[in-house]
Each structure stands twice: as C-alpha cells, then as structure tokens.
Design a protein around this nucleic acid. Structure first.
Length: 267
DNA sequence: AGAAATACCCGTACGC
DNA sequence: TGCGTACGGGTATTTC
C-alpha cells in the first residue's frame, strides 16, 4: 500500500542505483504493465535511453530518461529493486529493465495493479493531479480555500488525487485522527483553525512516514514483522492511544476507515 | 458537471 | 486438509 512516504522511500533507494545507467534490455511478463503502449512499442522506445534522474510526483516514481519520462506507479502491491543480472526471478517479477552495468531494475507486482508508463512529459501526464502536500507552496491557506470549495465529505476528498496528491487510506486516517476530525465532516464546514491543524497533521504524518523509510507498514508483503506505528489504522477494537475508547472501523466512500469515536466527534 | 459506484487484480484470512 | 468466499487498496472508467 505505497503512499507518498513509501514511494519517496523507493525514489531515494532507486536514485543512486539507477541514475547514469543506460537501459540495454527489457523483459515484460505482463503486457498491461506498460499500457497503453504495446510491449514491442515500449521496448523499442526505451532501449538505449539513459536514466538522468529519479524523482517523485504524487505516488509516481518519475524516471527522467534521455528522450522521455518513465512513470512507475506501484499501486497496491508493486515494489522495485535493483539486482545483479542473472539473479533468479521472483514469482511476480513482471517487468525488468536491464542496465549497462550488469544490474537490472525489477518491478515486482503481485496484484498486477501497477503501471510503467512511458510518456513525453511527466508534467503533462500528471497535470490533473492536486498539489504536493509537502511542497512549500501548499500552505494552510491553500488547503482552506480548496476545502471551502467542496461539498464533499472530508475523507473521500483527501483521497481524491486531483484534490491533494499522495495521501492514501492509511495516512488519511492518521491525519484525521491527529486532527480530531471525523471523516464524514463536510469539507466546507471546517473552521480556519481546524484546517490549520489538519494541514499540519497531514504534513506531519507524511514526514514521519518518510523518516521511518515508509517501513511503518508491512506494505508489499515483505515477510517478518507486521508492526506498524499508527494510532488508528488497523487498530479496530483496540484502545485509543489518547482516551482509551475502542477504535471503530467504518466504511466511508467504500474505504475501510478507522476512527476514535470519542476524539473525532461527527457533530 | 460533479459525485458516487464499479472494474481491475490476487494474496491473505477466514469459515466450514 | 482443502475448498469457497470476502476483503483490501489506488485510480480509470462507468453510472447516477
């Protein structure tokens, strides 16, 4: 369940392993990974291009290539790694890019939700997305104005990538809890004070996630400890860390939602 | 037009 | 044990 912090973690991990590499080989095991291009088109276009930079926009990893941009979205279960050429393939290694130094970038994606999109311009491709929550330009005032313009419930709005880019279900629940806001509150009903708190907490939970290298959650089924450091997400029926009230799970906009009914009054 | 619901996937957890 | 089923999650697409 990579959200902004998990994607940012991968960006930082991939950057030193990918920048400066030239793509000399392609292996596609799942054609739809590269839609809307056909595998043959994808391969023909990407071969020979050098990776100039690795960046992030929303939940996309952006690989700046010689002539194009490659955007990788991990969706639910995707993960990236760079391994030595010849390393045996893992079960769900669907897309592999071979580099000029005997290493390979492997896109493992158990649920096949991810995408590797080759485009002329990442900016154009992501133009419809909302502001970056960690960008200095994203101020509390900007958030307040955007919330004022909406009649929707708070949570579905925060998850709408055209409203705000990079926040997913987990960090959304965490930010709302930290702000004492009920997920069904009407966006435009928030006071300036409430928005200021929400703005601060959105950024805080994201920064915290990045600081922990996105390792707070067992996202992509990496074996071992399933420990996480969240206050409400995944803590249904467990006591609220603030007041002890059992955490409730409800469904908001089709999404599992975790709240403390005491700390996040619906009224 | 805008908002809500559905489709896309499959590993996992659960019930019988 | 093994089979069947519900569930989750981000976003493009479809429906309301």
């Amino acid at each position: 369940m990579p959200e902004l912090p998990e994607v940012e973690t991968r960006v930082r991990e991939m950057r030193p392993l990918c920048v400066g590499r030239t793509i000399v080989g392609v292996r596609l095991q799942w054609a739809r990974h590269v839609e809307p291009l056909l595998p043959s088109e994808f391969e023909q276009q990407i071969l020979g291009q050098e990776i100039l930079a690795v960046e992030r926009r929303a939940k996309y990893l952006v690989f700046r290539l010689s002539r194009q941009d490659l955007l990788i979205h991990l969706r639910m279960s995707g993960d990236l790694s760079v391994v030595a050429s010849g390393t045996p393939y893992e079960k769900h290694d669907h897309t592999t890019l071979g580099f000029d130094n005997h290493t390979e970038l492997r896109f493992n994606d158990a649920r096949k939700f991810g995408r590797a999109t080759l485009v002329a311009s990442a900016e154009q491709f992501t133009a419809h997305l909302g502001p970056e929550p960690l960008d200095p330009a994203f101020t509390a005032v900007v958030l307040y104005q955007r919330l004022q313009n909406s009649n929707r419930a708070l949570k579905p709005l925060l998850l709408d990538q055209t409203f705000l880019a990079g926040v997913g279900n987990i960090y959304c629940d965490e930010a709302l809890f930290a702000s004492g806001l009920h997920p069904l509150r009407l966006a435009s009903s928030l006071s300036e004070q409430e928005v200021a708190l929400l703005w601060q907490n959105i950024r805080q939970v994201l920064w915290d996630g990045i600081a922990r290298n996105g390792a707070s959650i067992d996202w992509v089924y990496r074996g071992g400890s399933q420990q996480h450091h969240f206050a409400v997400y995944g803590r249904t029926h467990q006591p609220c860390l603030t007041c002890g009230t059992p955490i409730q799970r409800l469904v908001v906009g089709q999404r599992g939602t975790h709240i403390c009914p005491q700390c996040q009054p619906s009224g």
